[in-house]
Amino acid sequence: MSAPSVMRHLLAAALIAIPSAAWANPLDEQVRAAYSAWNAAFNKGDTEAVAAFYTGDASFLPVTHDVIQGPDGIRKFFAGLFAGGVTDHALDLIRTAGDDKIVIAAAKWSAAGKDAAGKATRFSGIATHVFERQPDGSLKLKLHTFN
């Protein structure tokens, strides 16, 4: 076997041996971690913890077409959801883009609740998130919209 052929085989073997996590997009991993923490706060019904994921000047644009500004409005919106029995929220990342200051993410979301007749059901849709990187490296939501 020639030297170039041996090198190709060694390179192929090395690539196969590298865990797939080594190929993961760092932004994807950061957003997945933020989503996991956000979901945990939501699923505890903790309005204070949910609001803490947003910047002080955040805009929240829910399916109701309301324009909600800042953590106080966000807290009030989620208090209404929790009072209505919405639970079991999940975010499934579709894609990310961004840089060291702003990260944009799209996700599928789902949650459990009750329909207009009071019957248990699942709701779902698509969400867009614009995160602002904080001085400590964490991500906070600057803009959140969903349908």
Rank of each mutant, 00 (worst) to 15 (best):
K140T: 10
A97L: 02
I126C: 03
R95H: 09
D99R: 01
N39G: 12
Y35T: 14
A49F: 09
A52G: 08
A22S: 15
M1H: 05
K108Y: 13
T128R: 03
V130C: 02
F131R: 06
L81S: 10
Y54I: 08
G118W: 00
P19W: 11
A12Y: 12
I102V: 04
H89P: 01
L139I: 11
V67E: 03
L141F: 07
G137H: 10
Y35H: 14
Y35N: 15
T55P: 02
A116P: 08
T96P: 04
A120E: 13
S138Q: 06
F123I: 15
E29Y: 11
Q69S: 09
L93A: 10
G80W: 15
K44C: 08
Y35Q: 14
F123N: 13
V31P: 07
G125Q: 06
A83N: 15
N147Y: 14
A117C: 02
T64G: 00
I94L: 07
T121I: 13
A97C: 03
T145C: 13
P62A: 00
L93F: 14
P135E: 15
S110H: 11
E48H: 06
A97S: 10
D99N: 15
G80M: 14
D115G: 00
A58G: 09
K44L: 15
P135Q: 12
G84I: 15
D88N: 08
S124Q: 09
S124Y: 12
I104P: 05
V6Y: 04
L81W: 03
P26C: 08
D92K: 09
A49P: 03
D46F: 12
I18C: 07
D46W: 10
K101N: 13
G85T: 12
I104G: 00
V103T: 13
A127E: 14
G56M: 11
D115I: 13
I18E: 06
N39D: 14
A79I: 03
F42Y: 12
S36D: 14
R122N: 09
F146N: 03
K44Q: 11
L27K: 01
S138R: 01
V103C: 00
F53A: 11
S20F: 10
D57F: 00
P4Q: 05
S124E: 15
K101Y: 00
F78P: 00
A127I: 13
F131T: 06
L15Q: 04
A13M: 14
A13I: 06
L27H: 11
F60T: 02
H9P: 02
G73E: 08
A12M: 13
I102G: 04
V130F: 00
A34E: 12
N147C: 06
L81V: 14
F77M: 04
T87V: 11
D66M: 04
